[in-house]
Amino acid sequence: MSVISSQEGRLSGRNPPPVVVSPGYWKGVVRRVSRDRVTLICGAILLVMLLIILFAPLLAPFDPLQGSTGRRLKPVGWQGHLLGTDELGRDMLSRLMYGGRYSWFLGIAPVVVAFLIGGGLGITAGFAGGKVNMLIMRATDVFYAFPSVLLAVAISGALGPGIFNAILALTLVFIPPMIRVSESVTTSVRNLDYVEAARATGAGSRRLVRVHVLPNVLGPIFVYATTLVSVSMILASGLSFLGLGVKPPEAEWGLMLNTLRTAIYTQPLLATLPGVCIFTTSVCFNLLSDGLRSAMDVRA
């Protein structure tokens, strides 16, 4: 759950050589990805999962909230329940489908928000330099002084349980590393010769950022953000597991793991299914971001 640190350790120590986006760059990226079988498979799995959870209301065979204690903890394949039923007799398959919606949302939303806010602040700091940089980066240091899990738990613990609070807590956790990464990438791009040259010819800041800086920094920042998705997903399911995220009777994988603990003695397979879902998603996101990183030639 502390995956953030390693990338941070490598990124903040030394600035990675920036990628210069040339006209053929994206073609090259696509070509490299299309040759990388692991990345393709992971991407495909994630795409299928995404489609399933998006269309859960159409695909789910049963109502995920409707149970009956008369048919609780039934095995795989019991009377049309392909993956059996949970501790309250609700269809497991349907719950896993709907549960994915929350788990994915909790995994991605904080990263997206952090990407926008942290990326914005980081690019600003990197581009502006001087006092602005100092201010933003010192504030970031403060949040770096908290282990990520601790910060997430402390904030959502103080705010109280709930989806919104969980997202807020996770976003706050991801903003600082996002700032650091984008600042360091931006700084190195800014110092590149041709950007310096453009500046010397009198290009305005706005134009400098739009034409020269953004295209070169967004890629690496995006790749970094994808590595955070799997962290965020595990952290979020952990918060739900602790009772700080999604509330019953809603389905969410982390929460399902917790409530199905009781089934371990009667239906061990059922009890492990949500764990398998979290694990698969997380592995795929990790490998996908690894693949993207090497395809985009980001040394981060």
Binding site: M1, V3, S230, I234, S237, G238, F241, G254, L257, R261, I264, T272, G275, I278, F279, S282, V283, F285, N286, L287, D290
Partner: peptide
């Protein structure tokens, strides 16, 4: 390594 950073470790603990 990938499995290690991707597994929800509380779940591993339960197992």
């Amino acid at each position: 390594a990938v499995a290690g950073v991707s597994v929800p470790h509380y779940w591993l603990g339960m197992v």
